[in-house]
Amino acid sequence: MTLAALADQLGVTTASVWLWENRNRVPIASTIRRVAQIFDVNPTALMEPRTEAAAPEKAPPPDLQDLIRAIEAKGFRVQITPRRKQG
């Protein structure tokens, strides 16, 4: 559904919906209930903080074997060789 379509159904401006979506404004309770009806969700689900995917800096580092499998799945060949001593 587009911002304009949702705004039309709610009787508000597209700018209002954009502001809600980008967390610059919060709709009034009756509007939250109406949005919940439109999308057939519980209104409290719309009021709970959004859970974002774990930030890369918080995610555990990938396992070397997983990385190799992912690279090889793309059609590349992986060969690991020991480092040469510098000196």
Results as ranks from 00 to 15, higher is better:
84 R>H: 11
54 A>Y: 02
36 A>W: 03
77 R>N: 04
75 G>E: 06
55 A>L: 15
42 N>C: 11
82 P>T: 12
74 K>H: 07
74 K>T: 14
18 W>G: 11
38 I>Q: 00
6 L>T: 06
43 P>G: 02
28 I>H: 13
82 P>A: 15
85 K>Q: 14
12 V>D: 04
26 V>A: 14
65 Q>C: 06
39 F>E: 03
37 Q>H: 01
29 A>Y: 12
40 D>R: 02
57 E>L: 11
24 N>Q: 12
67 L>N: 04
55 A>C: 02
61 P>S: 15
40 D>Q: 15
39 F>S: 02
28 I>L: 15
37 Q>E: 08
44 T>V: 13
56 P>Q: 05
13 T>F: 07
26 V>S: 15
24 N>K: 15
59 A>F: 05
25 R>S: 14
7 A>S: 07
75 G>T: 04
14 T>D: 08
73 A>L: 06
20 W>E: 02
8 D>Q: 12
19 L>F: 10
59 A>W: 03
32 I>W: 14
58 K>T: 15
39 F>I: 10
57 E>H: 12
55 A>K: 14
67 L>Y: 00
16 S>Q: 13
57 E>R: 14
45 A>W: 13
81 T>D: 04
33 R>S: 07
8 D>G: 04
36 A>E: 02
80 I>F: 06
78 V>Y: 01
46 L>W: 04
83 R>Y: 07
83 R>V: 03
13 T>P: 04
33 R>V: 05
15 A>W: 03
49 P>Q: 08
47 M>H: 02
6 L>Q: 05
2 T>L: 04
53 A>Y: 06
31 T>Q: 12
64 L>C: 04
10 L>D: 11
59 A>K: 12
84 R>V: 04
86 Q>T: 13
67 L>W: 00
13 T>R: 04
55 A>M: 09
54 A>R: 11
12 V>F: 09
24 N>E: 13
19 L>M: 13
59 A>C: 05
84 R>W: 05
32 I>M: 11
71 I>F: 06
67 L>R: 09
16 S>M: 14
87 G>E: 10
46 L>Q: 06
30 S>L: 05
28 I>R: 15
74 K>G: 10
22 N>A: 07
66 D>N: 07
40 D>S: 11
19 L>N: 14
56 P>D: 05
56 P>C: 01
23 R>C: 01
68 I>C: 03
5 A>D: 10
64 L>V: 10
63 D>K: 13
44 T>K: 09
72 E>G: 06
1 M>T: 00
25 R>D: 12
16 S>H: 10
84 R>M: 12
17 V>G: 01
23 R>G: 13
2 T>E: 06
52 E>Y: 10
52 E>N: 09
59 A>M: 14
31 T>W: 01
11 G>S: 09
77 R>L: 03
21 E>P: 01
52 E>L: 14
34 R>Q: 10
